[in-house]
Design a binder for these strands. Structure first.
Length: 444
RNA sequence: CGGGGAGUAGCGCAGCCUGGUAGCGCAUCUGCUUUGGGAGCAGAGGGUCGCAAGUUCGAAUCUUGUCUCCCCGACCA
């Protein structure tokens, strides 16, 4: 993509309303545009990031055996009356009345809706288990939205729902999602620690939150240090096999959010292994048994003919929130530092002297070569001065920069700069292109 | 929802106390010079001062109401 054709409205000055790094940088890098408190448009650069996150989530859900579908944003109130959550949910639920005076709502979550779908079609234990998910916008009318997309009112979320015959079977579904989440976050370059958590308004008695450690985290968390660097299970996990040992390995050590923190248990952790920090929740898994299936009569026939309410779980990943969370976990004073898997473009080409024949030609050659290699670089072909281009490229955080100017070309050289380390090397254009192609092909 | 703060040019702000034809920096446009870390000089364009009432000869400025945004807390993915 040529910058001159792109829509990248970067800001030199920081909008006054943004207080934390990710919010500031998302506004400055032209990723998002605020429409109202907690409601944002996703501009092209931000949208690419969002899609990259979404795609990784989708691939890992599919790998774990979940099946994608799509439910609407608007739901009828009746469904929520059945579970008695229509009144219980309170003002966080955005309620809408249509032209026929029917009560509707903008969905804050979809347990009721999918339970409704399930009971319409599934009558026998033979149809279990089922594990379905969708990626959809949701709305919770937070009293006080803040931190940009990390705590917006409208947010993009992946939520999966499992239906099983009993608790033992439900736990297997729970484990699938648990393992899938570890791989999902690892692929995004995040170190997410599963921690025991409160079940909240969704209800149930088994739940883990997946937490990214960051100084600006929303809540205090406590865990055993070894959990932070424990490697992810890996993409070759056999989801049809027994996942319990993998889950046990990660739940044996102490890890809890402040809501369920047990100081005595934490003190049992060796002192040099105790980690108390702040964290950002990027995912949560719940098992809640028959909380919805019972009142909503989602039952199946057992082999003997008796009716049994299905055991359910739900599993969320905050897709839009992760965009902010990654920046919180990965930035410096110059701007964002995208992990390779999430970066909106993997390579940025900087033309240091737009209009100078040899420089333009070299940039053009580099651009076309990378495009043809499937790399999708962002080529800064603007008339801006070198300094402005360096600053902007650093701010938007593309992992690799290819810097081409007359000074280097005189000796037949260009520069490659790695955003994360700041390391630069001078080399012939051919070599630079080969190197960038290798890097981008291997890690994608 | 309790407490606090702010709405003046695209962005960041001053002016308000003490009413009298609306300003600064950045950005934008034009010209010249410059050209490897957010350039310099000269010139230009752009605002019914959130909205609505009221006081006054006269309101960005004073009064009342209202809307929106932000911060702290409670709540939450």
């Amino acid at each position: 993509m040529r910058l001159s054709r792109y829509f990248l409205p970067t800001l030199k000055e920081t909008p006054s309303e943004a207080r934390i790094a990710s919010h500031r940088l998302m506004l400055r890098a032209g990723m998002i545009h605020q429409e109202a408190a907690g409601i944002y448009s996703w501009l092209p650069l931000g949208f690419k990031v969002l899609q990259n996150i979404e795609q990784i989530v989708r691939e890992e859900q599919n790998r774990a055996g979940a099946v994608e579908m799509l439910m609407p944003t608007i739901q009828p109130a009746e469904l929520w009356r059945e579970s008695e959550r229509y009144e219980a949910y309170g003002k966080e639920m955005l309620r809408i009345t249509d032209r026929h005076k029917r009560e509707m709502l903008y969905g804050p979550t979809n347990e009721e809706m999918l339970t409704g779908i399930f009971r319409s079609y599934c009558r026998s234990y033979k149809e279990l288990p089922k594990l379905l998910y969708h990626i959809q916008w949701k709305f919770r009318d937070e009293v006080r939205p803040r931190f940009g997309v990390m705590r917006g009112r409208e947010f993009l979320m992946k939520d999966a729902y499992s239906f099983d015959i009993d608790e033992a079977a439900a736990r297997k579904s729970y484990n699938r999602m648990f393992i899938a989440y570890l791989n999902t976050f690892a692929r995004m370059g995040l170190k997410a620690v599963p921690m025991r958590a409160e079940t909240g308004p969704i209800g149930g008695d088994l739940s883990h939150e997946f937490i990214i450690l960051a100084d600006t985290g929303e809540s205090a968390v406590y865990c055993h240090k070894d959990l932070v660097d424990m490697p992810s299970p890996g993409l070759d996990v056999d989801f049809e096999g027994d996942l319990q040992p993998l889950v046990d390995e990660r739940t044996a050590l102490y890890a809890a959010t402040e809501d369920v923190h047990d100081e005595d248990a934490f003190m049992a952790v060796p002192e040099d292994k105790r980690l108390s920090a702040r964290g950002i929740e990027v995912g949560q898994v719940f098992y809640f048994g028959t909380k919805y299936s019972k009142p909503m009569k989602a039952t199946v026939a057992l082999p003997g003919g008796a009716e049994q309410a299905v055991h359910m779980g739900s599993y969320g990943v905050g897709v839009s929130r992760i965009a902010g969370a990654i920046i919180e976990a990965s930035h410096d004073e110059n701007g964002i530092i995208w992990p390779m898997a999430i970066a909106p473009f993997k390579v940025g080409i900087i033309n240091l002297r737009q209009g100078e024949v040899a420089t333009d030609a070299a940039c053009e050659e580099a651009y076309l070569a990378l495009v043809n290699a499937g790399v999708d670089p962002l080529y800064d072909d603007s008339e801006d001065r070198a300094g402005a281009k360096f600053s902007r490229m650093d701010m938007i955080g593309l992992p690799w920069q290819l810097i081409i100017g007359p000074r280097g070309l005189k000796d037949g050289l260009v520069e490659i700069k790695e955003r994360a380390s700041g390391d630069r090397q001078s080399l012939p254009l051919r070599d630079a292109l080969n190197q960038l192609q290798d890097i981008c092909t291997v890690s994608v």
